[in-house]
Design a protein around this nucleic acid. Structure first.
Lengths: 153, 153
DNA sequence: TATTGTTATACTCTATAACTATA
DNA sequence: TATAGTTATAGAGTATAACAATA
């Protein structure tokens, strides 16, 4: 394997091979940037808010389904749900059909919190998005479902 | 390059307000997915590999500049660089002009490691990218520099 | 006095392994 | 015996605060 100038010094990606690396690093950095934009008004972590948003959109889910969806192991999700339950953002109930399963549902407080969080974060990100051209926003809008697909494959 | 209707009409994000939320959650999940795709052949973390890649591309940098670039605090970068130095992937040297500063440079081993890691990860992600249409790959390629811009703003 | 980097310490998130209870 | 979830424990990564060396 040779290390040509292109491979080590290029600014943007023009090849499919480079795309994977570039995308990976870009996603990492953007995620860290988003994580540091912290919220003052509630005590929930980024991960907890993501779970809340999932429940808000998809309705009641089992703990296992939530763990799969968020790509974490069940013990991690138990921890997150404990945190959310203690704050009154979600409620647990045993499944009627299989009493090993636990169904998690969002509460009214949870819904309000999701809406407020979305508004606040959108304000931050939207400010950045506002600096983009219409074409660039279109790129991001198109990228979202592709990301979902890759992540869930 | 324009992103016309077929690429931008999605069921999820049709408004700019929703775009910020969707993008944020999608980035989080994809990042977690990428993080779980672990490497068997070296002992470096995702963050350490990102630092190595930055040094490979941009050349020698001070610790502070690296911290800024990767969006972490200086103590975190010190830790990461210690790890890289111990493994022989980078070398420290004091700056000639300002002896408070420490310059970090990638070694030959570091360069080889970056290339190998890139190849391996690309294989994983490229497999997913291979399942996409040419248009979809074009979207991702266009998204990368936009992400960089948002993250570094 | 201000700045660059390091050390000390603690917190958050995540994972694996062992356990409980249902199926 | 297998599965869903929990508890116990440990590791990785990050941050803030206090410190050292230099400007």
């Amino acid at each position: 394997m040779t290390y040509s100038k292109d491979m080590t010094t290029q600014q943007h990606t023009t090849t499919d091979a480079g795309l994977a690396s570039e995308l990976r690093l870009a996603v990492m950095r953007l995620r860290r940037r988003l994580a540091t934009e912290r919220h003052p008004d509630n005590d929930l972590s980024l991960g907890a808010m993501a779970v809340l948003a999932a429940l808000c959109r998809r309705g009641e889910m089992t703990l296992g389904a939530l763990a799969d969806f968020e790509r974490v192991q069940p013990p991690s999700m138990t921890r997150t749900v404990n945190c959310l339950e203690k704050g009154g953002y979600v409620a647990r109930r045993p499944s009627d059909t299989d009493r090993r399963q636990v169904l998690i549902a969002i509460t009214d407080l949870g819904r309000v919190t999701v809406a407020a969080d979305r508004e606040r974060r959108d304000a931050w990100l939207a400010k950045r998005l506002g600096g983009l051209s219409a074409d660039e926003r279109a790129v991001l809008r198109a990228a979202v479902p592709i990301f979902e697909r890759i992540a869930n494959e």
